[in-house]
Amino acid sequence: MSLADRRRLVRGLLFVSPWLVGFVGLQLYPMLLSLYLSFCRYNTLTPPRFVGIENYRTMLFADEYVWTSIGNTLFMMLELPASVVLGIGTALLLNRAARAIGLFRTLYCLPYVLPSVSAGLLWLWVLNSDQGLVNALLGLLHIPGPSWLKDAQWAKPGFMLMDLWGIGGSTLIYLAALQGVPQHLHEAAELDGAGPWARFRHVTLPAVSPTVFFLVVTGALGVLQYFAQTFVMTKGQPENSTLFFGLYLFQNAFEYFRMGFACAMAWLLFLVALLATYLIFRTSARWVYYEAQEGAR
């Protein structure tokens, strides 16, 4: 390496050093430490004791609540397809609202900026079985509403309703994707006699598909970590029907003081997240190509 190269290297590293320190000190080292702890029994009061793969074995084969929480978490993934439809649908509506787009965008996004604790508290009340807003609206349609958060069958759908209410962030991202669809494609399709549905199916949808993919993967990661809402609203009840993986991880770490076990759970989560990230990077070539094509116009 030449002297000039070395000087540029030092200068570059100096500029990125805050991030580098954070990466090593707050991400790399803690992750390795927790990998070690995941093979230990550790209650934070006495020093960790190495126990081999015991935590992993307990997690996968002995602790029934882990599987309950995984089942509940997987069930929550059902909200992802719904959020794709609602996200694209609301974005299409906003995209058409030429004049009042600012106002409607605000109204659609306001729920999204609520802190999850506030949203959770509000929805405890919105989903109240006797006096709640959702059941009052269902009453208008003469549908008897369930007890939502008090009913093991309906608690998770209640959470999904709340999440879909906060769709605004995804709507904005879909809106940006829609606005990036070249107008001439729509015009060409229209000239070829394509109706609105055919134009949506063959022009709009392919153009926003990378966004759909990205939001589904990040959404899945979000569901895997689902925590604040259930911690505030139900604490995993009724009948453990809202005991999600993120909540059980937290409880193991900070309520049952099974630190090593919780670290093993965190590592399982990490491996799944790694897989999701890998998928995004593998397929990103496809959607980078879209953007490059657009830039070349």
Binding site: L9, G12, S34, L37, F250, A253, C263, L269, T277, F281
Partner: peptide
């Protein structure tokens, strides 16, 4: 500077790291 783009892609990858994974460590 040499190595800039490698470090940058490492940093990009960390965006995907779930906060719940890092909380405990």
């Amino acid at each position: 500077w040499p190595g800039r783009d490698t470090l940058f892609s490492i940093m990009l990858a960390t965006i995907m790291l779930p906060p719940a994974v890092l909380l405990l460590p």
